[in-house]
Each structure stands twice: as C-alpha cells, then as structure tokens.
Design a protein around this nucleic acid. Structure first.
Lengths: 193, 193
DNA sequence: TATTTTTTAGAATAACGATTCTTTAAAATA
DNA sequence: TATTTTAAAGAATCGTTATTCTAAAAAATA
C-alpha cells in the first residue's frame, strides 16, 4: 500500500559519495547533492536524515568498496613484491585520472577535514586504517609462509609502513600530476618488501 | 604622524595561523580569529584583507617556519640515519602532544581541504612539498659525499620517499594516539637510508 | 474507487558568516 | 592644541545553507 520509492536509494548514495569525495564535506551542500542525484531535498532528508547522517553513510559505503578492492588485489597471484607493485600502480593511475580532479581518497580527505572534530567520523576513519593494516598484515603472513619475503622487519611494522605510504601518496597526489614523483616514492617503499 | 598600530601584526598572524592549523579554513571564522587574537574585525580587514588573503599569509608563515626547522634539524651532527631518526622522533612527539589536538601539519591539512579547489593555495602547498624534497635531497647528497649512505636508490627517489613518508604520518596521526603505530612506520622507512 | 504513502515544487525559517560602514575614542605628531 | 591615523564598538548588508513545512501530484494497494 502506498507509492513506492521511485529513485534508487543506492544510486543516490553513490552520487552523494562521489560529490563528498570530490569537494569535501563543507564544500558540498545538500542542494548540490540533490541536484547531482536528481532527488528532491524532501526525499533526501526523509530517506537519509540530515547532512551528517548522509555523510556517514557515504563514508561507510566508501570504506566497504575500498576494503573489497584491497582484498581482491591482495589475492592476486604473483610474488608479494609484484602484487604490491601492481596495487600501487593502479592506485597511482586512479589518482592521476584527469576526470577525477585529484580527489584523492575519501578516507584520507576526511581524516584531515573532520576526524579530530567529529567523533563519529573519527572512529570510522580509524577503523578503516586499522582494516587496511590487517589486510596488509594477512597478505604478508601468507607471503612469508610461502617463503617469498625478504624483509627483516616484523610483519606488523611492515603493514603499518604500507598503510602510511599509501596515505602519504594521497597527500602528494593532491598537488602533483607528476607521475614520476609518485612512482619514485613507491619504488623506494616497495624495495623493502 | 597619526596613531600607530597598537597590536602586534606578527602576533596576530601567528594566532590566526594557530587557529587555521587546528580547525581548518572553513571551520575557522574571521570572528574566531578576531576573538582569539584580541583584535577587532575592522582592524583585521584593514590590516590583512579578506579571509583568503589572511589564510595565504598564514600559510606562508607556516611554510617558512617549517622550512627553517627542517633546515636546522638536517644540519645536526651524526650519521644520516641518526639525524633522520631524531627528526621523525621529534615530529611524532609534536604530533602526539596532547595540547595540540592532533592538528597535524597545516600544509598537509590544506592540501586535503583546499588545494585542488584554490590555485593560490595549491601552488603554495606544491612549493612547500618541493622545498622539502630539495632539502632532503641536499641532506642525502652531503651524506653520500661522506660515504655514510648505504642506499641503492637514487637520491632523488629517496628524497621523494621521505617527503611521502612524512605526509603519510600526518594522515595517520589524525586518528591515532598510538605512538607505536607511528614509530613502526618510521622504523621501517628509515631502515632504507 | 478510496486510501495510503511517497514524491515533487517551492515557500518559509533560521541560523551563520563574510564584509562593509558609521561613529566614537585614542594616540601620535606638527 | 589641531590634525591625522588607527582602533574599537557595533550596527547593517548580503549571501549561503541547513532544515522544515505545506500543498499538490503520482503511484500503489485494498
């Protein structure tokens, strides 16, 4: 009974996420999101609550896609060094994609814009960074078990190092379009694995 | 002839910088700055122009202190690895200082909040990152000349790697108070030098 | 068809913040 | 002391944005 939702809730969330990703929380108005997603303000508030709730939903969405992608990429065959090189290469590709105006990573962006001011945001960002650490760690454990790891560091230290490197690249890519600069940093980082 | 400025222009700029540093550009209102620095809005606009100009002045101020500090720290005596370890240790100390609510680095914060949206900001951020690269590079050149460098990478690559690592730490420190986490990342990074 | 629920359109509200302006007080100098 | 410049107080303007509300149209079901 009653009219059904005509817009695709999931699609709207995706559009909202894209906008927040590109312009940040403060520089994106609810109106922006409504126009971009083709949904009326009323429906937006009715469906997703206020701007903060909407943003948190977007953040969660981003977290999950990031997590899924990392999981898939670290499962790929090859030497650990090869796998990580491929991972960082495609990362750099995405970062430099002209169409995606150096938007970086929503997690890293949010960490800088909102994390210390908003506890709800902070826990999510922290959780994501920890997630990444765990996934890198599991990857390294596997590699070590297969005897393919040369590093003399503990796997925990290595995992943390890899997460930090990834975040550093996101900062660098905000002002650089020089692929070589990013590749150089990666090359050195991965020589450790 | 005529009354002289009673407030210390330099001090006001410093206070403004501290606020922008802690809360970011959008989350800091001109009124905030005026109250914090104890100067009236009118004087503020008269002296520094609008909010953007004020921010740019703060950014430049930050750049120069950062530059000076890095210069001093990289001039200190000791093996290159020791010097860099000390540098990153004091960096971590500052990042975790309870009084400075995880404000990170104004350059990195600004890179994420404003860089791709504001050309004037972008050039300054980019210039600063390049500055750091050059200073690390000069440091490595000196170290190599003294035969104290073991790395097999080019010095340019190493310098870029170090800048990236520093930026990565700033992102991590936004949501972590776990010193060990940051130290682990540094330890791995510096094992390369 | 009558009822229900959800969509829109768009007005209305209610801050907040950047910026400007006017006036008055204060200090410096000629 | 007269003049000049600046500071401070505070009102006023103007634009943006989050949020809510009302009314009307649209679709689903009983």
């Amino acid at each position: 009974m009653g009219r059904q939702r005509t817009f695709d809730e999931d699609h709207v969330l995706e559009q909202a996420m894209q906008l927040f990703w590109t312009k940040g929380f403060e520089h994106t108005s609810i109106q922006d999101v409504c126009e971009y997603a083709g949904v009326h303000r009323g429906s937006m508030y009715h469906t997703f609550g206020d701007k903060h709730e909407l943003f948190l939903a977007c953040l969660d969405r981003f977290r999950h896609t990031l997590r899924d992608r990392l999981f898939v990429q670290l499962e790929e065959p090859g030497d650990p060094r090869e796998v990580l090189t491929r991972f960082f290469d495609t990362l750099i590709d995405r970062m430099l994609d002209e169409n995606k105006q150096r938007r970086g990573c929503l997690i890293a962006n949010t960490a800088m814009e909102l994390a210390p001011l908003e506890p709800c945001v902070e826990v999510r960002v922290a959780a994501n960074l920890l997630d990444m650490e765990h996934m890198f760690h599991a990857f390294l454990v596997r590699a070590q078990r297969e005897g393919k790891l040369k590093s003399k560091h503990s796997l925990r230290e290595m995992a943390r190092f890899l997460v930090t490197t990834k975040q550093g690249l996101h900062v660098m890519a905000k002002t650089t379009t020089d692929r070589k600069m990013l590749e150089d940093a990666c090359k050195v980082a991965l020589s450790l694995v």
